[in-house]
Amino acid sequence: MNGRTCVDTAPLDEILTRYPASEAALIQVLQDVHRAYHYLPCDVLVKVAEALEVPLAKVFSVGTFYKAFSLVPQGRTIVRVCTGTACHIRGADRLIEEFERELKIKPGETTADMGFTVKTVNCVGACAMAPVVIVGETYHGGAEPAKVAKYIAEKEADHEN
């Protein structure tokens, strides 16, 4: 926190122009920051606090309270395994295990090559197609453990392109 900046702050400067400098805009600003950086870098949070004139502690409290935010870098593709009730009773836990086996990471972790982050999410609202897995932007309804390797391979092909 000595004024040294490690990440490019240009995206942040642009984001700050979209909102009034008030506390009410904090969550919206953090959401845009998260979208631009794929996480909330500490030095960016310091700048957000200064720009919105909100105590840094408050920025951190909001940044750690909401599930949409992460303080550590995320993989290029976020895998979200829905663990809503409908998915739970239709076998979401087997899907999570399969992702653990395939990617060698637990939910909440990121692969060493920063390719994938696996998360669980409490219901994505696609319950009629339970169980559901979302890889990046692609929804897989009626997901099966046996197809998990395929879901990953499809996305890996995208990464290489």
Binding site: E23, A24, L26, I27, Q28, Q31, V54, F65, K67
Partner: peptide
């Protein structure tokens, strides 16, 4: 339109209003 931050408790009305104010829900 305000996009939520992904916290179930924000469906509770008083928490939702705190969240709209940019605070912890």
């Amino acid at each position: 339109i305000s996009r939520g931050g992904g916290a179930f408790v924000c469906g509770e009305s008083s928490a939702l209003m705190r969240s709209l104010e940019g605070k912890v829900g």
